[in-house]
Amino acid sequence: MSYPIPAGTLAGKTALVTGSSRGVGADTAKFLAAAGANVVINFRNKAPRAEKLAAQLNEEFGTQTLVVGADLTDADSVASMFGAVRDVFGGLDILVLNASGGMEANMGEDYAMRLNRDAQVGALDAALPLMRAGARVVFVTSHQAHFIRTTPTMEAYAPVALSKRAGEDALRKRIPELAEKGIDFVVVSADMIEGTITATLLNRLEPGAIDARREEAGKLLNVAEFAAEIAEAAIDEIPENNERICGDTSSFNPIV
């Protein structure tokens, strides 16, 4: 199997991917490990799945991994996670803010905003003392969220989209501060991703939604393809406006 980043490119670097026990986060962690990075695998629940991924990465790539459970909406939990990173690796070079949500039941009306905005900023704040000069923060989002100000999205996804855009905006405000510390920031955005939990939930709530998006976009990325874009964003030159826009966007109105 070929990997998006050549082996050894990230040797000696440490990367943390939030929400990396499955899906896009797990494949992103795998691609970073294949490039030689030590990888911190974060999960909210289901530790065995995270431990299994860590064992796989150790065996396949010989990289050192750290598995840390943390609820990103719990400040103490997040502080504990980054404390473990400090104790094991001493610092951090890549922070991939991948974990998001907001469609879960019984989590409270403000859960989407707490997770997709407040927790993203909280994770960055907790990580900053560990981030070395030359480090990079990668924020993962969707076109439905990135363009929500100018292009309406499915009703069921609107609260998530609005909160993710709020998270992106809050993080973008930190770009000057990050630059002073020698830390880069990039947003990675794509359309709905084939095979993700979010896509499955939306298709259940609005039958045919994914087929409609696929027809309009021409092609939707799958989990591995989007993860490859995220992994590459961790090493490529920072694009214009600090955003890496993946795939067709002709059905979205640009933000001006």
Rank of each mutant, 00 (worst) to 15 (best):
D110I: 00
A99E: 05
E109K: 15
D74Q: 06
D87V: 09
G108R: 13
L72D: 07
S100K: 04
G101H: 09
A105N: 04
M107D: 08
V88F: 04
A99D: 04
A99F: 01
S80P: 00
L97D: 13
G108F: 06
G69S: 06
A112Y: 10
R117V: 03
L72Q: 11
Y111K: 03
F89H: 10
A112G: 13
V88I: 10
D118M: 06
M103H: 02
D71V: 04
N116F: 08
M107Q: 12
V85I: 15
T73H: 05
L72H: 01
G91I: 05
T73S: 08
S77M: 08
M81D: 01
F82A: 00
V85R: 07
V88W: 00
I94F: 13
L92G: 10
N98I: 03
A105L: 14
N106S: 13
V85D: 06
D110H: 09
E104D: 12
L115F: 13
R114I: 02
V68Y: 01
R117K: 13
T73K: 06
A70Q: 12
G101R: 06
M107G: 02
G101N: 12
D71K: 06
A79R: 04
V68T: 07
D71W: 00
N116M: 11
V96K: 07
S77G: 12
D118A: 10
S100I: 03
D71S: 15
I94G: 08
S100Y: 10
M81G: 01
S80N: 15
L95F: 00
A75W: 10
G90W: 09
S100T: 05
A99K: 08
D93W: 11
L95K: 09
G83L: 12
L115N: 14
M107C: 10
G69C: 06
R117M: 11
G69W: 03
D76Q: 10
D110G: 04
D118L: 11
R114T: 05
S100F: 04
N116T: 09
D87M: 08
E109R: 15
G101F: 09
S77L: 10
D74P: 02
S100R: 14
S100W: 01
L72F: 00
L72E: 05
V88E: 07
M107R: 12
A112T: 13
A75T: 09
N106L: 05
V78T: 14
G91R: 11
G101A: 02
M113R: 14
A84T: 01
M103L: 15
A105F: 14
A99T: 03
I94R: 13
V96F: 01
I94L: 14
S100A: 11
N116P: 07
A84F: 02
L72W: 00
Y111G: 02
N116D: 08
S77D: 13
G102Y: 05
S100M: 08
D118R: 00
V88K: 13
G102F: 11
A79H: 02
D76C: 03
V68A: 15
A84H: 02
A84Y: 00
D76H: 02
M103K: 01
M113W: 15
D76P: 01
V96C: 03
G91N: 02
L92I: 11
A79I: 04
N106T: 01
V78Q: 13
E109Q: 15
D76W: 03
R86H: 15
L115H: 11
I94N: 08
L115Q: 15
